[in-house]
């Protein structure tokens, strides 16, 4: 345990924590994406999938607590590293140019903030129904159709998925680097995997609000 705390105490260790928690969240989102697109087969598929998760009982709460812990550790590390970076350059350059840093890498922090706001909204919107008048417990498919009748909400979901894709594309590649998983033979595949997963997960999830905007659920 002491060794873990010593690792967390270093800037590299905080990145290791971000990589590890990020991988857990990615795995969750892969399953979330696959289960959500079931709505295109039949909205009731979504209801039975939700019922299946509910039937897990305490195990579901363990999983939720684990995901929440991952989110909190991920944010705590990001916050500390961001503050450290701000302090590390008290006087900024009069003239500075980015030469190779990607848009994805440069939007990790503010994009991450947006994703956090989105997750809070998303849970209040579809999981608890607090922000969705007419929400019905257990009728997930209907709730999705109802929720995306609002154009601004559907657009917000699409924007969030765009930033999720960007966050993924840099985050997955970074996780390999941070965990020291590099080899000349696989370094290209790491980039491809990062972009592929980003496109599959964020793109897959985005199909639902996009379909709603195009009138598919009417």
């Amino acid at each position: 345990m002491n060794r873990l705390f010593a690792l967390w105490g270093t800037t590299v260790g905080k990145k290791v924590a971000m990589a590890a928690t990020g991988i857990v969240m990615i795995l969750f989102l892969i399953s979330h994406m696959i289960s959500n697109v079931l709505i295109f087969r039949n909205p009731e598929h979504l209801d039975s999938y939700a019922a299946l998760l509910r039937s897990l009982g305490p195990a579901l709460w363990v999983a939720r607590a684990g995901l929440l812990a991952c989110v909190l550790i991920h944010i705590a590390a990001a916050w500390q590293l961001t503050m450290l970076a701000r302090r590390a350059r008290p006087i900024t350059y009069a003239h500075h140019e980015y030469r190779v840093a990607t848009y994805a890498s440069r939007t990790m922090r503010w994009g991450g903030v947006l994703l956090f706001v989105f997750i809070v909204f998303h849970i209040l919107h579809f999981t608890t129904g607090t922000l969705l008048p007419g929400w019905q417990d257990g009728r997930v498919g209907d709730n999705v159709k109802l929720g995306f009748q609002s154009v601004p909400v559907a657009i917000f979901y699409l924007v969030a998925m765009l930033f999720l894709g960007l966050h993924f594309s840099h985050g997955i590649w970074s996780a390999f680097q941070t965990l020291g998983l590099n080899h000349p033979s696989y370094n290209r595949s790491r980039r491809l995997l990062a972009w592929g997963l980003a496109l599959a997960v964020a793109g897959g999830l985005a199909t639902i609000p996009a379909a709603a905007l195009l009138g598919y659920f009417k």
């Binding site: 800037t11 590299v12 905080k14 990145k15 290791v16 590293l81 450290l84 970076a85 302090r87 590390a88 350059r89 980015y98 030469r99 190779v100 840093a101 890498s105 440069r106 990790m108 840099h170 590649w173 970074s174 390999f176 680097q177 941070t178 965990l179 020291g180 998983l181 590099n182 000349p184 370094n187």
Partner: peptide, 26 residues
């Protein structure tokens, strides 16, 4: 500060040190 893998360092390095070394350190 900490590394967030912008890779600006690799581009700026006059000796072309690769960010692969950062993975080795990690």
């Amino acid at each position: 500060g900490g590394c967030t893998l912008f890779a600006e360092c690799e581009d700026a390095c006059p000796k072309e040190i690769s960010v692969e070394n950062i993975a080795r350190l990690n």
